[in-house]
Design a protein around this nucleic acid. Sequence first.
DNA 1: TCGCTAACTGAAAGCGCTTTCAAACAATAA
DNA 2: TTATTGTTTGAAAGCGCTTTCAGTTAGCGA
Lengths: 351, 351
Amino acid sequence: MMINPEYAFRTGMESGATLEDVAREAGVSPATVSRCLNNPGIVRPQLKAKVDAAIEKLDYVPHGAARSLASRRSRLIGAIFPSLDSALFGGTLEALQSEIADSGYTPVVASSNYDPEQERNHLRNMLASGIDALMLVGAAREASVYRLIRRRKVPYVLTWVAGTDGTHPCIGFDNRAAAAAVTRHLLDMGHRRFAMISGATANNDRAAGRLAGVQAALEERGLTLDPTRIITRPFGVEEGRAALRLLMAREPRPTAIICGADPFAYGALLECQNLGLAVPDDLSITGFDDMWLSASLPPGLTTLRTPRNEMGTLAGRYMLSVLAGEETLPPRPLDFELIVRGSTGPPSQAA
Amino acid sequence: MMINPEYAFRTGMESGATLEDVAREAGVSPATVSRCLNNPGIVRPQLKAKVDAAIEKLDYVPHGAARSLASRRSRLIGAIFPSLDSALFGGTLEALQSEIADSGYTPVVASSNYDPEQERNHLRNMLASGIDALMLVGAAREASVYRLIRRRKVPYVLTWVAGTDGTHPCIGFDNRAAAAAVTRHLLDMGHRRFAMISGATANNDRAAGRLAGVQAALEERGLTLDPTRIITRPFGVEEGRAALRLLMAREPRPTAIICGADPFAYGALLECQNLGLAVPDDLSITGFDDMWLSASLPPGLTTLRTPRNEMGTLAGRYMLSVLAGEETLPPRPLDFELIVRGSTGPPSQAA
DNA sequence: TCGCTAACTGAAAGCGCTTTCAAACAATAA
DNA sequence: TTATTGTTTGAAAGCGCTTTCAGTTAGCGA
């Protein structure tokens, strides 16, 4: 068979040096060069030095696709988030990225915009591009999605949730328990009339869990959260603002408003200022996630600090460990922390 | 401790149908299956149907690495951001991702933490993993980095900056002009005593450009920005707060403070409230980027809206176009928009 | 010195897909 | 009918790397 001369020409021009070029330059076999790259310990130092010199000289960079094809590992880890334009998941992504970088892994990222359909498409795309492992947010999705992942035998981990009865490996915290802790803090201060501003709960088990946690904690003390006192909105400051107006327009007014996310609480605080309501004397407000403004916005937002960076780090570590074939224990739920600041206090006598 | 068999993965037991399996199932050659996937138009519909059925039946997903190796395209686009845990670049990433998704591309992402060293490492990693194109933020980096990119013949685009004399393709806006516009707005209102809270300018040409723009606009009117009136800090609300205290501690107090980023301005506004300073009567404050709280935080922050999502979209579109081999025009600088809200007004007579 | 391990090294066979190139076929013109 | 053109299809050669397996060399005790 004749070698197409044009083809040979093109390879020579367009690509960088190949492993074979390095081998020739160093006077060893390609296999040895490969070993220098992947398992330097087993190559005689003297040879390794020659190879290193050749690599340096030719400015060789290994070809990822060829490597993946031969080794069956892409060194790519997929991560699909509901959204990326809040700082919330950005922290998790950044921590994940930084954890896996040292092992030569890089995250491939997509945002689903809280839409299961988009999530599924991105997942297909990622599986096709050969990710070695996968990180998702939350557990609530169709069984067929999990089947898809399992069929490809891709290790995966769910974040921002905990304990799905051992069905899935989770690196996260118990949203329900966390919301209950916030609620008990208010109950212990003497509050009895509650309202909640919640994120949309469809396809969002974090939001659903938080809502359930509030309801459960109230019921423990014989209270219930009237459905008309629950306002469900997409996340956002202005949404929180509008919700607060609605909630305070109806008598009897609540003495405490629990927000399912900090942006709601920022909006609520700002609207109180607007309406001339004193926080916490007229109204206590709590947030969720302890985002960057919570400490600064007067009077300081009582909120629940979620381990958003830690989840990225641990999810990365977990996946690396599974990929390394180590005996990996199912991770345990992470801790959360109630941060008490100025926005909560006992209800006033008048209220 | 038992490992839950449901998710106890072992690496290396990956299976899945191959293109050859599909070909056998459909009774055609592998070449035909490949064509159905990549160029369906040239296959007889009748055959294509058989192939599609086989793909469906075997639940076939193409092997990305093999595909990349043979076609010399990875369908991966690299994106390196200075940071991901603010909403700033998250918007750009999300827009980029969504723009390229339809063409079957996925972004691989890294955060450099504003550190050139880290950026270079991520870049090496990405080049090795075979990205087809690359998006970076800003233009300020060592020439050797650009050489590395050029040697690999990877199309790239710089975002968040404009016009580097045509040296690099940029999708962004002119930070200097934008900052000048903010400054002129204040000058036109009658302000003469200025101060600035700026992000660190080392390795950050966006911050440097903004600072230069302020200085230039002042000099146009015969004013100068005293170096002691420039406070340089890492981005953050608390940093803005501290900076404001510093700036107002010295007589004569400025009547206008220009912030190089919104978080600084949030902190400054909050600290004014704290110090009992009236905005804008005692002090005008401006931000930069029009982030999510700027409209809500009283009295509303005058700020410069930067096209952060648009940059992601256009950068994606630009790279796709170059990859498609289309004649691609050097992109033009994008527009920015001064958003005037309550935080700026004429200086009071007393000041 | 010889034999026997142990430690390296190299040859070669793929990994799963794309892409020539040429053959086969259908369609049209002569 | 035959020549000619155009359209699909299949065979086969890689893409650049890893990894098995067998061969080579070095190290050491006897």
